[in-house]
């Protein structure tokens, strides 16, 4: 089956995860919530990070193909976006492991 179906669906799923995650993230960061230690927080932060990057970059990919029309350019931009997303994931994991 086409990956586009899953991508569209997963964009909504990560959207919901982000909404719940952001509320928690905002609360713990700005209203002196609980300290973020332990395996559960670690898992939460990891899923939150991945959701944010997936949601953001899949959104950008979707927007990109509506404005870039040459197939070759689309491939180049797609590559750039994927590399950037992977690099950001790397930075994110580095921060979480501090």
């Amino acid at each position: 089956m086409r990956k586009e179906v899953f991508e569209w669906f997963f964009l909504r799923i990560t959207g919901v995860i982000l909404l719940a995650g952001l509320t928690l993230h905002f609360y713990t960061m700005h209203y002196n919530g609980p300290a973020q230690t332990g395996p559960y927080w670690r898992a939460f932060n990891f899923i939150f990070l991945l959701s944010a990057i997936y949601h953001g970059f899949n959104g950008l990919l979707g927007i990109m193909i509506e404005y870039v029309h040459s197939r070759a350019l689309q491939k180049i931009f797609e590559g750039v976006l994927i590399v950037t997303a992977l690099a950001l994931t790397g930075i994110g994991i580095y921060i979480l492991s501090v």
């Binding site: 990057i53 953001g56 970059f57 959104g59 950008l60 927007i63 950037t84 950001l88 994110g92």
Partner: peptide, 12 residues
């Protein structure tokens, strides 16, 4: 959406 994705970059 575009602005927030750019923000992820600065945030991290």
């Amino acid at each position: 959406g575009v602005a927030l994705t750019i923000y992820i970059f600065f945030h991290l």
